[in-house]
Design a protein around this nucleic acid. Structure first.
Lengths: 108, 108
DNA sequence: CGTCCTACTCAGTGATACTATGTAGCAGTA
DNA sequence: TACTGCTACATAGTATCACTGAGTAGGACG
């Protein structure tokens, strides 16, 4: 797939919120999950930047736990503000995608 | 609706391509069309910037025609490169949106 | 020791949409 | 004439976001 960078702006953070919602997890695993999902070009630096932003904005609860495979992991879980932010993201996504689909149908 | 700015990055240009495909038209009318569609915060300056970029990238054919209501209008039509770009946009959109939908279903 | 995978951080860059402002044509009206 | 409002296009500067590239570090395994 071509470069998706621009199209992911504003949505990649939402994807990370979705992943954290489905399971308390950490940056490295989130990156792997996104790659497996098809966002193959997303690298760790990008994900960690998003996670730091989520933390700075008070949307997640962070817990540091040791790992058997390397350095300690920072596990992320959504708090109330995070769940609210995810709801907002979903609403926006529905809004935008329904309109894009409508545009595409129009004037066939 | 909240601020859609970030989510429109990478997609607004595609929307403009869709509109031009459906009908040869001009900047002011494209802005109105986007507003009517639900992208109420999109303003002329944004659309004109996109149109200039499309022109610079050789994706459109431009024809200046007088208007009965004001200054002359610059009408835009897709050329072959523009149609190809639109196809690319649609492919990317399908790719991204299918994966976002999958994420949302996962771990309900 | 060296290599590899895991795991996190950060400074700098590039692309895109937005803000704010300016220019200008034409119509209606007072 | 003067004013207002809608049409129509353009552009310099800003903010945000994802990406690049580099660095730090722990543990396993040869």
């Amino acid at each position: 797939m071509d470069d998706l960078t621009e199209m992911l702006k504003g949505t990649l953070e939402g994807c990370v919120l979705e992943i954290i919602r489905s399971e308390e997890t950490y940056g490295y695993a989130i990156t792997r999950r996104l790659n497996d999902l098809g966002f193959t070009d997303v690298v760790e630096g990008t994900v960690y930047a998003i996670l730091l932003r989520l933390e700075r904005n008070g949307l997640v609860q962070v817990t540091k736990r040791p790992s058997e495979l390397g350095p300690p992991r920072k596990f992320y879980a959504l708090n109330d503000a995070g769940r609210e932010e995810l709801t907002k993201f979903r609403t926006k996504w529905e809004y935008v995608s329904s309109r894009i689909d409508k545009l595409r149908e129009g004037g066939e």
